[in-house]
């Protein structure tokens, strides 16, 4: 679930407040928003890619708080990682036209790793 909203990176644009489908964040007048309802987070990672300044970090565990620190996220280079992998930049979409999934589906039809298998879903 959402664990880090970096106050040093955040510009208080409140895009996360708007874009979170589970209404996890709360805007604070004159300040950066807060993670107000952490347990409601559905761990979809989408707030990360909507954030224009890579200030959010969602840990993969949807049920427990891992307690990861901002320093650890920085050290592992994880801020903005999902956006980079997709090709989204500064909260804007991009990269769908470079999606190589067609090669996967093709490979799933031709590779047949162990005898006859059904095509990939």
């Amino acid at each position: 679930m959402i664990e880090i909203l970096s106050a040093s990176r955040c510009t208080a644009c409140n895009v996360c407040v708007k874009a979170c489908p589970a209404n996890v964040f709360e805007a604070v007048p004159g300040s950066v928003p807060v993670i107000a309802r952490q347990a409601d987070c559905q761990t979809c990672f989408l707030c990360e890619i909507y954030c224009p300044v890579d200030a959010l970090f969602v840990a993969a565990d949807p049920e427990h708080v891992t307690g990861i620190t901002e320093d650890a996220v920085v050290a592992a280079g994880l801020f903005g990682g999902y956006a980079r992998a997709l090709g989204w930049k500064k909260g804007r979409e991009g990269g769908a036209d470079a999606d190589p999934t067609h090669r996967l589906r093709q490979a799933s039809l031709t590779a047949m790793p162990t005898g006859p298998r059904s095509p990939a879903p």
Binding site: F45, Y82, L86, A98, D99, P100, T101, L104, A107
Partner: peptide, 8 residues
């Protein structure tokens, strides 16, 4: 292709 096509 998996890494780039299925980043989630």
């Amino acid at each position: 292709a998996l890494r780039r096509g299925q980043p989630n």
